[in-house]
């Protein structure tokens, strides 16, 4: 059976430290937009930590949840793309073929999670910041959409490593940059088709909820609700 990558985010563990946010930028060659563009809503963060203030002083509570692409099984972003730039790959990921994208931005509208990002300008790095760029991840030119890939490049490396060692991939061997960095262990990644994997076990907990389940997107990210 093929793999089905999925993630569990435990909101009871999440501290909102945003290590995942920087880890993602570093791993995926996300260019910074700069102040004026960021102020226009053009900052790119494939994963963001949403915050909610609840209650009135002094009975105030804060909630947050990290939101990357939910890698939906029934992703609204996929059918709307006229050029198949947005498609479902064999392991269930919502992949984006940058070279095929012509920039209709239709997928971005269709995504209920606002998890897709557009390159408004040609990305650039002040020299020598370009030396930090990850050679495993292509950069995206102006006019194309981009999004969270579950750091698929990491999965590919781990798979070829396992293949070279003639062994199956171990649970927990593959983790996207956000999961890898998470100091409080709030994020767990793995194969949902493997019932023994940590992610499958956690996704089945009573605390598990999907974001915007009512939209019918069947996300592959399960949030474990906070217990207070």
């Amino acid at each position: 059976m093929s793999r089905r990558w999925g993630m569990v985010i435990d909101l009871d563990r999440c501290t909102g430290c945003e290590a995942c946010v920087v880890a993602c930028s570093a791993e995926n060659n996300i260019a910074t937009a700069g102040e004026s563009q960021a102020a226009k809503g053009r900052a790119i963060h494939w994963i963001r930590v949403e915050r909610s203030w609840e209650g009135e002083f002094p009975n105030v509570r804060v909630r947050f949840r990290p939101v990357p692409c939910q890698q939906c099984d029934a992703a609204p972003c996929e059918p709307v793309c006229p050029t198949y730039a947005s498609y479902h790959n064999a392991e269930g990921l919502n992949a984006q073929v940058y070279n095929r994208c012509i920039g209709t931005r239709y997928c971005a509208n269709a995504c209920p999670y606002t998890g897709r990002f557009f390159n408004w300008f040609q990305p650039s790095w002040d020299k020598p910041l370009q030396l930090q760029l990850n050679p495993d991840v292509s950069i995206r030119e102006a006019g194309v959409m981009e999004k969270c890939t579950f750091c698929y490049q990491r999965a590919l490396v781990a798979e070829s490593q396992a293949e070279a060692e003639k062994r199956p991939l171990r649970d927990g061997e593959v983790s996207p940059a956000c999961v890898q960095s998470c100091p409080s262990g709030a994020m767990v990644f793995g194969d949902l088709n493997d019932p023994a994997s940590a992610v499958s076990r956690l996704a089945g907990l009573d605390r598990g909820v999907k974001l915007l389940e009512e939209v019918g997107t069947f996300p592959k990210i399960t949030y474990l609700a906070r217990e207070s």
Binding site: C17, A19, V22, A26, L131, Q132, N134, Q180, S181, C182
Partner: peptide, 26 residues
Amino acid sequence: LAKKLEGNPGHPVNRGKLCARGQAGL
């Protein structure tokens, strides 16, 4: 060339994890 900073998995303080400021050290 350094491409990414991650926590040293064997280190007793951070056990493979790294905060946002640490990762931005690149």
